[in-house]
């Protein structure tokens, strides 16, 4: 018998009698929070910046203002031609994206309780890009902010997901004497534009 069958057989023999699966009732956790306010608060605590804007045009102009000197920029928003210094050709070899300075992506889901922003393969040209970029800029419609993780997962179809990620704040570590340092292996800064 190979290991697969041995393991499964042992688990079957050793498991306890069936225990029912508890139901999650999200109402128990509901505090009627102001979703936008809470989202902003939590993103800031996680080391990110949040700005409220009216449209994507403002996103790009504000981004340029914030990062005036950068050489390599890419935005996934419509009409980003003037902003982009590279095109989708560059994504064929992601290893060469190491000098990407600013990346702008659009998200469809955010979570108030922890400032997490959801991205899937649909929102990202290549998977490594939100990590390899120096600065990450995310755009999120306010009405797409849900209060808790429970509602977030109700909005995600598990069968229709190839890869997805919640990002809350910039990459960070406290592994040297517990001092918090922003910018470990992933993006060194995170800016969220709420529109």
């Amino acid at each position: 018998m190979d290991s697969r069958d041995t393991i499964l057989k042992k688990l079957k023999a050793n498991k306890p009698e069936f225990i029912a699966l508890p139901k999650i009732n999200p109402a128990v956790f509901d505090e009627n929070i102001d979703k936008v306010k809470e989202f902003i608060r939590k993103t800031e605590v996680a080391g990110g910046k949040v700005f409220e804007v009216t449209d994507n045009k403002e996103v790009l102009s504000k981004t340029q203002e914030a990062f005036p000197e950068t050489k390599v920029n890419f935005s996934n928003l419509d009409d980003s031609g003037f902003f982009n210094t590279i095109d989708s050709e560059s994504f064929k070899n992601p290893h060469e994206l190491n000098d990407l300075d600013v990346l702008v992506l659009e998200s469809t889901l955010g979570v108030a309780e922890n400032g997490a922003v959801w991205l899937t393969d649909n929102d990202i040209p290549v998977r490594v890009i939100p990590f390899i970029t120096k600065h990450l800029v995310l755009v999120l419609p306010k009405e797409n902010i849900v209060p808790y993780m429970h509602q977030a997962y109700s909005a995600i179809n598990p069968m229709d997901l190839d890869y997805g990620i919640f990002i809350s704040g910039p990459s960070k570590t406290a592994d040297i004497e517990q001092s918090l340092v922003i910018g470990a292996q992933g993006a060194m800064s995170l800016t969220v534009f709420l529109k």
């Binding site: 993780m149 910039p170 992933g186």
Partner: peptide, 21 residues
């Protein structure tokens, strides 16, 4: 994450399902 470090969630929570290109 709350139990681990007090963060409400870790910076990255990656959901892998199908291999990338």
């Amino acid at each position: 994450a709350r139990s681990a470090t007090g963060q409400p969630i870790t910076t990255y929570s990656s959901h892998f399902r199908k291999p990338g290109k």
